[in-house]
Design a protein around this nucleic acid. Structure first.
Lengths: 233, 233
DNA sequence: TTTAGTAGTGTAAAATTGACACTTATTATT
DNA sequence: AATAATAAGTGTCAATTTTACACTACTAAA
């Protein structure tokens, strides 16, 4: 019985994160130089520890780099080509996360050489990390078209022009602002605040924030790509 | 450098498959009794071998049970709670597959005790396999709403009433057949054959088949949840 | 030839989408 | 104080898509 387990080969298990951020103009990915090949940019990653779940490990690794917790984190795909890591066979479970770039600025760990890159101007990446980024971009586009996850990339308070710029950046296009507002507001997911954004434009745009109750309902009923997790406290 | 690898814990890596089939009335999942707990129904699964990719392993395991190749197979999710397998910590990458149930009947391996279960009437399952099935059903519903993957569950030739019954079963509802036909046919993905189905009804329904060229185009442009795979021949 | 039973088709109202341009609010400049 | 500059904000119409809904058409069996 337990013999059956002992005959099996074990493998190293890594986690790699595609960390998206939005600087107001461009959709960006956070890359680091690390480990074995310090010459090459790569995704932030690390090893699974014996006492943690995959998601906990991904969250820990993200925290080590950015100092952020409570970040949007979704499993992307498990990559397991036999020679994807040429040194030792390693299975990598990739996660993608959406961070509020301003939050991150202040908390970044200095022990990593990290830099934001526009998704349209990426350097060559380690191993199959380029595939991971490509897939993450596709998934983000696919998902953001139907789920209101874009907010995760913006500050708590944001204006409609900011939100439109984000979607423009995600889809590399230029949406019509009238149709865009109509569609976004028809979800009833945004609460208009009395406050206007100062400084950027003469007129100033009203701030909005997400109606977090409605947002929870939507995400829990639909974002259920992520299952169970008995062990998440 | 390579030291860094040696310090890491390795883990067993399993694959489990949620195998969907459609018997003309109900959406079904193929379950087996196997291994450590012969008392409990479980998903078909197996171990990753050193020379194969995750997808190759999932396809091999599917073949061992069903004798089928060229089956729709999509990675679902990697499950890695520390104690999901109480004996040895194991990461399982779950795949879901869609099979033409009639093809399978003739090729099933006798060495497994296997049975189709309605998705609405599942027995208790091993480990976290129940979570896997739940997630697979959600994913199938989510995906089938926008991608024409339903055909994978039907024979080469099928009628519109059969297709409607399949969608009824997937979504546990009763679509309006007029609206259903219109929507399906508007995709231009079906080719109407001259032949009618005999025996089931007096009038007989026309058979259709998928326009495989258009289908390929659609799937390759959108099904790209599955990436790269340099090693797939 | 009649009947039983499923297959197959059409239409109108409602909702959504997409294209398109002017007015408003505010600050900086004169 | 008036004016200019700039981005914010809003409305309408046509086209398309969606939804609700019911009758006719085949064919085989009786």
């Amino acid at each position: 019985m337990v013999e059956q387990y002992k005959q099996q080969h074990p493998y190293l298990l890594a986690l790699d994160s595609i960390i998206f951020g939005f600087d107001g103009e461009r959709l960006k990915v956070l890359l680091v130089k690390r480990g074995v090949e310090e010459e090459t940019w790569s995704l932030m990653g690390g090893w699974l520890q014996p006492d943690e779940s995959l998601e906990q490990a991904a969250a820990r690794i993200l925290f080590d780099l950015t100092g952020l917790t409570n970040v949007y984190l979704e499993q992307l795909y498990a990559f397991g080509e036999p020679h994807r890591d040429p040194i030792v066979r390693t299975i990598s479970v990739a996660y993608f996360s959406l961070v509020k770039i301003a939050d991150y600025e202040s908390t970044i760990s200095e022990q990593f050489q990290a830099r934001w890159f526009s998704i349209y101007d990426l350097p060559p990446l380690l191993f199959d990390h380029g595939d991971m980024v490509d897939l993450a971009i596709k998934r983000l586009r696919y998902k953001a078209a139907q789920h209101p996850i874009g907010f995760e990339l913006l500050p708590e308070k944001f204006t409609l022009p900011q939100l439109k710029k984000l979607y423009d950046a995600i889809y590399n296009t230029d949406f019509d602002k009238r149709n865009f507002s109509r569609k976004i507001l028809s979800t009833n997911l945004l609460i208009k605040l009395d406050e206007k954004q100062k400084g950027f434009s003469r007129k100033g745009a009203y701030y909005y924030q997400v109606d977090s109750i409605k947002y929870q309902q939507l995400t829990s009923s639909f974002l259920n790509f992520i299952p169970n997790s008995e062990a998440i406290p």
